[in-house]
Design a protein around this nucleic acid. Sequence first.
DNA 1: ATTAACCCTTGAGTTAACTTTAGAGTCAAG
DNA 2: CTTGACTCTAAAGTTAACTCAAGGGTTAAT
Lengths: 142, 142
Amino acid sequence: MSYKIGELSKLTSCNIETLRYYEREGLLPPPPRGNNGYRYYPQDSVQRVRFILHAKSLGFSLADIAELLSIQVDKNASTCGDVKQIAEHKLATIARKISELKEMYRALEKVSAACDGSEASAEHCTILQALESDAARAEKHL
Amino acid sequence: MSYKIGELSKLTSCNIETLRYYEREGLLPPPPRGNNGYRYYPQDSVQRVRFILHAKSLGFSLADIAELLSIQVDKNASTCGDVKQIAEHKLATIARKISELKEMYRALEKVSAACDGSEASAEHCTILQALESDAARAEKHL
DNA sequence: ATTAACCCTTGAGTTAACTTTAGAGTCAAG
DNA sequence: CTTGACTCTAAAGTTAACTCAAGGGTTAAT
Ligand SMILES: [Zn+2]
Ligand SMILES: [Zn+2]
Ligand SMILES: [Zn+2]
Ligand SMILES: [Zn+2]
């Protein structure tokens, strides 16, 4: 019916101490405790933790994630408009990251494609030449 | 003909201390010094610094960036194949980040679209409901 | 010649996000 | 009923990536 911290840790591959840390930081709601003081996590904690870990792997800070997750806590204090605004701000952030990554991908891809990847010395490698002179081409738009 | 550190700092919006730090960390080649001990940066340092800053904003660690930039230093020690392999590993990393971000974007977009963004209390906001129960939908693929 | 704005180095301080340590209680198996 | 695997808290330690501070030369302008 519920998980002890070690179980949640295994299910999510998230270190036990990190789980307690996330609780301290307000990312995980404090779960009910048993008479022994143990944390007994409801099942959806697994999804919650995975969400945190994944958002993190996408470059969101814990503060970002807290904002995303805290929306639900502010419930009574906010309007639908407030909530939607936060969501859309996040969407814009994600979209910006995507387009910057794409831009960098294209630049690196182009540079990489020009090299034959042979076993010859890299002395005259086109990738190296590009990095030396042109690596910042991806920055053109700035 | 060359920039003093303060000029480079302004041109790149990169803190002076950070520039010296990048030099210590091997991300910026030590520039020639004047008789006064001042650093005199060649012009392409601007592009180099911007490349570092941008790669950073895309989630690359300084170690990642050092790898990207150091390719050019290893020149004689490596073959074209070695170089290309590093480039392609980076490409794969970027591609993975892009697809994960897209996935998260779609999930959040869907949740957000269901909310009308009205001035009514968020009590019954669909975004909140989704976050409560389903925020981790983006994780389905794991 | 003074002074404000630069530059130098070394070393310490900061923030985020953990991770480890220490000391102590709890539970399940043999 | 003891032993090993868990759990608890509070606090200190760690790593990456800066950032600041102290103390002292340099340069350009008034
Ligand atoms: Zn860019
Ligand atoms: Zn090559
Ligand atoms: Zn994913
Ligand atoms: Zn709503």
